[in-house]
Amino acid sequence: MPKSRVRKKKVYSNPTNTGSQTSDSYEPSPLWVPITAVSLIVIGIGWLVLYYLSGQAYPVAAWGYWNLAVGFSCMVASLLVLSKWR
């Protein structure tokens, strides 16, 4: 029975600056990013909870169901801020 040919494995070499991103593009985010995101989440959830528990009388009774839009908008804004977090 014939013996199979032994192939040499290629030696891995680390690529040097082949991408457009450099090492300084991976700087950590400023401190305001997570603080703002968590604050927006808490404000949004607090707005919605207050709206439901008050029987739709608070935070702004004249807005009616637009209070839901305000609460959910705060939470969506927090997701947008978190997309900048590294």
Rank of each mutant, 00 (worst) to 15 (best):
T22I: 06
I35L: 11
S25I: 04
V49I: 14
G44L: 01
L48E: 08
V38R: 09
M75T: 01
A69S: 09
M1C: 08
I43Y: 02
L50Y: 13
A57F: 04
V33A: 03
W32G: 09
G46S: 10
L68A: 02
G44C: 14
L82I: 10
N14G: 08
K3F: 12
M1R: 04
D24T: 12
Q21P: 04
Y65V: 07
M75K: 05
Q56P: 10
V60A: 13
Y26T: 01
S13L: 15
P34C: 00
G71Q: 02
A61R: 15
K8A: 02
K84L: 13
R86S: 11
F72P: 01
I45T: 05
K84A: 10
Y12K: 09
P15D: 00
F72R: 09
S20Q: 15
A37T: 01
S4L: 15
R86C: 14
R7N: 12
S13R: 06
Q21I: 07
P30H: 10
S73D: 05
I43K: 13
S29G: 08
V81P: 02
A69H: 08
L68C: 07
P28E: 12
V38Y: 11
Q56H: 09
N67Y: 06
W32M: 06
S78P: 01
S39N: 04
L48T: 08
Y58C: 06
K8C: 06
P28H: 11
W47T: 05
W85A: 13
N67E: 02
M75Q: 05
Y26V: 02
A61N: 08
V49G: 06
A62R: 15
M1E: 12
L80Y: 05
K8T: 01
V70S: 00
W85G: 10
A77G: 09
Y51F: 12
N17H: 00
L80P: 00
T18K: 10
V70R: 01
A61G: 13
W32R: 03
V11N: 10
Y65H: 12
S54P: 03
V70I: 15
V76A: 15
A61D: 13
G44N: 07
V49T: 13
S23L: 07
C74D: 02
N67A: 03
K84Y: 11
S29E: 03
R5D: 01
L50T: 15
V70P: 08
V38C: 11
Y12N: 14
V76H: 04
W32C: 09
I45W: 04
L40Y: 02
L80H: 14
S4G: 14
I35Q: 11
L48P: 03
L48Y: 06
K10R: 13
K9Q: 10
K10F: 08
L68V: 00
K3M: 12
G64R: 00
W66P: 04
N67V: 00
N67S: 01
P15T: 00
T22F: 02
M1L: 15
P15S: 00
I45S: 07
L40V: 08
R86N: 11
G64F: 06
M75Y: 03
K3C: 15
S78W: 05
Y52N: 11
L48R: 09
